[in-house]
Write a protein that binds this DNA or RNA. Structure first.
Length: 625
DNA sequence: CCACCAAATG
């Protein structure tokens, strides 16, 4: 309830709608809730520049404000354009006979002084904190140090630090930046050398300090030596123009990094890069926009891809149109992809062969057989584009997925170019989806002539047998595979949590992360069984093994582990984004649907060929994949 | 009765 109001507030940036929201909050009676009221104060003081008086009036009418409420007002004002105005509620609070200031009060008030850079009120606050015995408090002490540094009094900052009994990392970091702020680069180096513990903020502090002092060479060195880099590190480098030379000389490297993100599915990192692109003015380079569209689609966020496409400040090229069509296709938005294609035709951009590959792909992944056929002939007849082998492959996929296996087979036989292994493999995949043994055997024979050592083909065929319960044939395939020392590609999945990527491989040696994932997974499966009536679907298992063992084998699939780990680690409400190297198996697909319903989370899985976005028990692929 | 608010890097 409170969160709803807060998010509503964050969307309005002027006083009038804020007043309306306030009136509504009053109706619900939540206006006396300290949390809601605090957010309202903060919003008026920071987000809206001319609403300070309104914040003060709100506070004035608040019944019996306690120390917490006073602190909130002091904090709000300290962050406003006129930080020193927070001294009024500070004095008011001290005059109240029933209330007394606490450590928060002093921390906020000192922060206000630091933001205003006026030394004299700072000194007064310091002596008052001393009288109340709060100057020894670690937060207050640390704020004192940075306050003195902001006001240019490095000697006092140093003295406060020397008198502290147990400085922690944050205190050390405050001293570090204090040295830089007073222009003492050598002092900062000393502090950095003496620090008993360092965290990312310490490194970022060094980086920013050097950059501000104009020591660009040293800053670059810090950047390369850092054990870990986050958003702040990167943006320090960009804002300080430390990487700009490299990027400006060839924006190729920027698109290169973006495409690496796309391949790895590193969404959070891609977002950071997007921020840089905007800040550094690279949005005016068409190819960078296209790379962003591609990155967002491949990282599972087609909505962001759409947004980049819609807001492009430069002309959309054929690559831009094709990228967004391919992105929509990957996410199962076939109709939208076709609609965009029509818009593209109207805008006068002429499609090329790659555009049609994306379109046909969109059709085959959304079951739009008629539309796909129409586009295929339009490509040949209207645009005069001679279909390449990839186009034929898409058509085989289109018919095959739609269970029209005979039609697909005939199509291959009538093709004017001779089919390659990929074409036959596409059909074999379709046979495995629809469980057609005869066709699968026929196709596998062709493949055996062309590409006998491909383990994936054996696995596909054996899956067809396994589904039909023909375990003899399954084990014979397995024997051939071991005899030819063919290895099944191990399945892996990864999930990004707080910009760190965790990988899971089926059957790997247990470690801390996998232990945790397994434990969470056991708990999840139990809940799915009791609350959603889940029963494991064992058809996806390759081998003819005991039922119980099979269940065990299915339960170890890497995407399940990644999902379990995500549920355990990510805060509620966050989307789980998983990347997998192979296709999702049927059982995992079901489990993801159930998890999304029971745990009320959105899960986006990128598999080998497309995206599955699970929400409320349904998948965006509508079980067509 | 408790907890919601707090210090350092861009």
């Amino acid at each position: 309830m409170e969160e709803a109001w807060v998010s509503l507030l964050s969307k309005c940036s002027s006083l009038k709608p804020t007043k309306q929201i306030h009136a509504q909050i009053c109706k619900t009676g939540l206006h006396t809730d300290p949390l809601v009221f605090g957010k309202l104060l903060l919003h008026c003081a920071i987000t809206i520049s001319d609403a300070l008086h309104y914040a003060l009036r709100l506070f004035h009418h608040f019944p019996n404000p306690d120390t917490f409420m006073h602190n909130t007002l002091i904090r709000s004002l300290s962050l406003s354009q006129t930080p020193l105005s927070s001294l009024h509620p500070f004095i008011q609070l001290r005059r109240q006979p029933t209330l007394s200031p606490d450590s928060f009060t002093f921390a906020f008030a000192l922060k206000a002084v630091a933001n205003s850079r006026h030394l004299r009120p700072g000194i007064q606050l310091h002596s008052q904190a001393f009288r109340h015995g709060f100057d020894a408090h670690i937060f207050v002490g640390t704020t004192l140090i940075s306050m003195y540094a902001e006001c240019g009094d490095s000697g006092s900052a140093r003295r406060v630090f020397d008198e502290m009994s147990e400085p922690n990392v944050v205190t050390w970091n405050a001293v570090l930046t204090a040295a830089f702020r007073c222009g003492d680069v050598e002092g900062a180096q000393d502090v950095f050398g003496c620090m008993p513990v360092r965290n990312l903020t310490s490194w970022n502090g060094m980086l920013a300090g050097y950059a501000k002092a104009g020591e660009l060479g040293l800053a670059r060195r810090v950047f390369y030596e850092m054990p870990l880099r986050d958003e702040v590190s990167w943006s320090t480098m960009i804002v300080g123009e430390l990487l700009r030379e490299e990027i400006r000389t060839n924006e190729v490297s920027l698109t290169g990094v973006l495409s690496a993100c796309a391949q790895a599915g590193a969404f959070e990192f891609g977002k950071i890069l997007h921020g840089f692109v905007e800040k550094a003015g690279f949005l005016y380079v068409g190819s960078v926009n296209n790379a962003l569209i591609d990155t967002y689609s491949k990282c599972g966020n087609v909505a962001m891809a759409r947004l980049v496409f819609q807001n492009m400040p430069v002309a959309r090229s054929i690559v831009s149109w094709t990228s967004i069509i391919a992105g929509l296709a990957m996410h199962g938005c076939g109709e939208e992809a076709i609609q965009l294609f029509h818009e593209m035709e109207e805008s006068g951009v002429r499609p090329d062969g790659i555009t049609f590959i994306s379109l046909l792909y969109a059709c085959s992944h959304s079951g739009l057989v008629e539309e796909g056929c129409g586009l295929f002939s339009k490509m040949k007849n209207l645009y005069g584009i001679e279909p390449a082998i990839e186009h034929y492959g898409c058509m085989v996929d289109l018919y095959g997925r739609a269970a029209r296996l005979q039609k697909a087979y005939e199509f291959i036989c009538e093709m004017p170019v001779s089919p390659n292994a990929i074409i036959w493999r596409t059909l074999l995949g379709a046979c495995s989806i629809h469980g057609n043994i005869e066709m699968a055997e026929l196709v596998k024979a062709r493949l055996a002539e062309m590409d006998p050592d491909n383990s994936g083909d054996h696995v596909l065929l054996s899956n067809v047998y396994a589904v039909a319960g023909k375990w003899k044939d399954v084990s014979s395939i397995r024997r051939t595979m071991t005899e030819h020392s063919m290895k099944k590609t191990p399945g892996w999945s990864m999930i990004e949590i707080d910009k760190v990527i965790y990988g899971f491989v089926a059957g790997e040696k247990p470690n801390e992360v996998t232990e945790e994932a397994h434990e969470k997974l056991r708990e999840i499966m139990l809940r799915l069984r009791t609350e959603a009536g889940y029963a494991p679907q064992l058809r996806s298992v390759l081998h003819d093994i005991e039922e119980e063992e099979k269940e065990d084998s299915v339960s170890k699939h890497s995407e399940k582990l990644a999902a379990a780990f995500g549920i355990a680690k990510l805060p509620k409400g966050r989307i789980l984004r998983i990347v997998k190297n192979l296709r999702v198996c049927g059982d995992c697909h079901t489990v993801m649907k159930l998890i999304s319903k029971v745990y009320q989370v959105e899960i986006i899985v990128r598999d080998r060929s497309r995206f599955h976005s699970f929400k409320d028990g349904f998948c965006s692929c509508r079980d067509y994949w």
